[in-house]
């Protein structure tokens, strides 16, 4: 929902981005594009544990779908 909000606009039509399409491409912090660009030590310290705990495949699928849908 957060990805959709800053890409196509607020899907719940409750916030300031209702009907406002910013078209921003959104990546999850655990996606390879972000992970590989991050400082490895900082990533390990701040993100790695949460990454293991997450169902990252499902999260990536959803976020990628938002990017593809909007062409962002």
């Amino acid at each position: 929902m957060m990805a959709e909000t800053v890409t196509a606009g607020d899907p719940t039509y409750t916030g300031p981005l209702s009907g406002v399409s910013l078209g921003l491409p959104v990546f999850h912090v655990t996606e390879p594009e972000v992970k590989e660009a991050s400082d490895a030590a900082t990533y390990k310290d701040q993100i790695e544990l949460a990454e293991i705990a997450m169902d990252t495949d499902d999260i990536w699928k959803v976020v990628r779908k938002v990017r593809e849908k909007s062409g962002a």
């Binding site: 790695e48 544990l49 949460a50 990454e51 705990a53």
Partner: peptide
Amino acid sequence: TNYRTLGSLAVQ
């Protein structure tokens, strides 16, 4: 979420 994080620590 907490148990999965704890389990992830065991994975690490």
